[in-house]
Design a protein around this nucleic acid. Structure first.
Lengths: 119, 119
DNA sequence: TCGATACTTCAACGATAATCGAATTTACTG
DNA sequence: CAGTAAATTCGATTATCGTTGAAGTATCGA
């Protein structure tokens, strides 16, 4: 019945850990193209099995999704879920006090969008 | 040196627990007026000592501040910190992919703005 | 099919986290 | 000062988390 709160707690918890937050940031930068588990592991210097556990937590929270591609498993961020989480936070935050939250800029300041997507 | 990430992790962790998220929501609704620890405890049916531990975690994360008032200790949300956290999330989220985050509405849908701030 | 490669799962461990009862601190009141 | 009210701190207990080494599951190429 109180499923939204549980989900919110799970998603916040998924991000509330150094390694997982780093994974999340890494995946965000890769966008919809995503990144293979092994690639994430070597990028962040995390043991594959440890990472797998973290990826599982992120995935179960709904913030990240996995897709098998050959021998690799490609992970990518579920953007809708991220938006939903931020939305929940902002709405709780602003409940009854909209002016207090007007601070949020959301100007995105895109960091060095290189010709990353060499498609 | 990587103090922002540590702070972010701490703040996410502070909110990533059922009781603490409930405390946070309760305090948000009270706005700058805040709420005494005992009042929070009875409102949420949490033991005073347990709550005290949770409040400490919220406070140490910077999301909440405490102020002694007579025998009571009044807790209230540190709005700047909340904005900062959301800002961090949004910026990470949108890094390199601004369009992906345009979903966030931020229309705040103010719930029952009573004459709360009787200043 | 055999042998890599890419991940995940399992069992076990040490470290934290959440909660409780009891004791303690701080502040007001008679 | 004694007594009470409001919170916090302490010690102990149980549960969950993060990590590791070893074993297991897919997938591909020779």
């Amino acid at each position: 019945m109180d499923s939204l709160e549980d989900k919110t707690v799970a998603q916040l918890g998924a991000l509330a850990q150094t390694t997982r937050l780093a994974v999340f940031k890494t995946l965000i930068r890769e966008g919809s193209k995503g990144m293979a588990a092994g690639m994430i592991a070597s990028t962040l210097s995390v043991a594959p099995n440890t990472l797998s556990s973290h990826l599982g937590i992120l995935q179960r929270s709904g913030l990240v999704k996995a897709e098998r591609r050959g021998r690799s498993v490609i992970y990518s961020v579920e953007m809708d879920a991220v938006s939903g989480l931020i939305d929940t936070l902002v709405n709780d935050c602003c409940a009854g006090h909209p002016e207090a939250c007007a601070v949020v800029d959301r100007q995105a300041t895109p960091l060095v969008v290189e010709s990353d997507n060499a498609a």
